[in-house]
Simulated scan of single mutants.
Amino acid sequence: MKLPLWFHRLGSPPTFYRFAGRLMPWLYVLAAGLTLWGLYGGLVLAPPDYQQSDAFRIIYVHVPAAWMSMAGYGLMAVCAFIALVWRMKLAETMVLTAAPIGAAFTLMTLVTGSIWGRPMWGTWWDWDPRLTSELVLFFLYLGVIALAQAFEDRRAGARAACFLALVGIVNVPIVHFAVKWWNSLHQGSTIRVFSESTIHSSMKWPLLVLAIAAYLYFIASWMARTRVALLEQHAGTDWVQALTQGDRHG
Rank of each mutant, 00 (worst) to 15 (best):
T226C: 01
D153R: 09
L243K: 09
V179H: 10
I59N: 10
L137T: 11
T35Y: 03
S221C: 12
L210S: 01
F81Q: 11
I191M: 10
A211I: 11
R192A: 13
A83Q: 12
L140F: 15
W239L: 09
Y17P: 14
L84S: 08
V179G: 07
S197N: 04
G113W: 01
L84Q: 01
A65V: 03
M24D: 06
S201I: 12
W86Q: 02
A213W: 00
W125L: 00
N183P: 11
P173E: 10
D238H: 08
A213E: 00
G11E: 00
H8C: 07
H234N: 08
H62A: 04
A156I: 15
V144M: 03
L84C: 05
D49W: 01
F138G: 14
P25G: 02
A178N: 03
F139S: 07
L208T: 08
P100S: 11
G157Q: 00
E152Y: 15
L5M: 13
M24W: 07
F151P: 03
W67I: 09
W121T: 04
L96A: 08
A220G: 02
L230R: 03
L142K: 00
A235W: 15
F177T: 14
V61C: 04
I58F: 04
N171R: 13
D128M: 03
G168A: 10
A146W: 13
G168V: 03
G11V: 00
M68T: 11
V144S: 07
A211K: 06
M120W: 15
V172Q: 09
W239D: 05
S201E: 12
Y28H: 05
H249V: 15
A80T: 14
R227V: 05
R227I: 04
A178C: 04
I59A: 12
L243A: 06
I219S: 00
D128L: 03
A46G: 03
R130E: 06
R225A: 07
Q241L: 08
L34S: 09
W205K: 01
R155G: 10
A213S: 04
F218E: 08
L164P: 02
K204P: 06
I199N: 05
A214G: 11
P13R: 12
A104P: 08
Y217I: 13
G246Q: 15
T106H: 00
R225I: 01
W239P: 02
I169W: 10
H8F: 06
L137D: 08
P14I: 04
V228C: 13
H8A: 05
T244Q: 12
L231D: 13
Y60E: 03
L34N: 09
T198Q: 09
N183G: 13
I169R: 09
V63F: 11
L75G: 11
G250L: 14
L140I: 15
S69T: 00
P4S: 07
L30V: 12
M88H: 10
A77W: 03
M68I: 11
Y50C: 10
M203K: 00
G42Y: 11
M108L: 07
F16Y: 07
R192G: 08
P14V: 06
I169A: 14
